[in-house]
Amino acid sequence: MSPVDPASASASEPRRGSSLRIPLLHLRVGVMNELQYRANFAVQLLQTFVQVATGLIALALIFDHTTDLNGWTRPQLIVVLGMYNVVGGMIGFAIEPNMGRLMADVRLGTFDYVLTKPVDAQLLASAREFRLWRLTDVAVGIGVTIWGVVQLDDGLSLGRLVGFVAATTVGIVLVYCIWLVVTTGAFWIVRMDMVQDLFTGMYRAGQYPVTVYPAWLRLTMTYLVPVGFAVTVPAESLTGRLTWERVVLTVVFLVVALGVTRLVWRLGTKHYAGASA
């Protein structure tokens, strides 16, 4: 165990403002843990590089045969590719590890330890595990995004940038909501790891703007696997094609998603019967 034992933080009565302290503490422990395995950083860097290179080669092949993809030019698609890596990196850094841990906990019955702590269980279950090295995806993704933005003909305004940061944050929260709802299914069906496979598989479609896809796929990619919101909307914002309707729709969807997630979480934890302990 590391010197900073997360359990000790919640041993006493919970204080106001402690809700943010616990995730931060877990983050620190996670970072310290990962810093022990520095070689993994090199491996992750290579993986990121290979992924970005393949994405760029795919784009080069596309633009060998055409000048635009459904109205999207090459620099705009580079922005989308960059954002795809940023969001993918955030998922790998914070969302995927926590959801994997949650699923394992439910299966093994060790979820008891989460429920018995005097902090909000959803918060604790969502911020326990962090994979530091996946942030290389985020860093490289930001680099690619900037490279794409620089090539845009019409430059960048402050408004676009603000919209972009807001849209990205909202998008990542949405991915978290939907992933948590799906993971909560583990309270009923126990074996949910294949759903995780399904989700990661579908996420790949985020490499291109969802507006390229036919309606049925576009709707799936927007509302079920919200890469539409997480990747396309921020990219739209940067490339100046974001409309007001889109912004309102995004905010409404965010509020609904947060509420539904909370509700499903409550139902799920009620349904949970400890397997051991």
Binding site: L69, M202, Y203, Y208, Y213, P214
Partner: peptide, 25 residues
């Protein structure tokens, strides 16, 4: 099944992109 369906996203992405290009050309 779920594994196979998850796998379908990849070719569908390629397919949609290249169908779009074919139609545009």
């Amino acid at each position: 099944y779920l594994y196979m369906i998850g796998m379908i996203a990849e070719p569908v992405v390629y397919l949609v992109v290249w169908q779009t290009i074919a139609e545009a050309q």
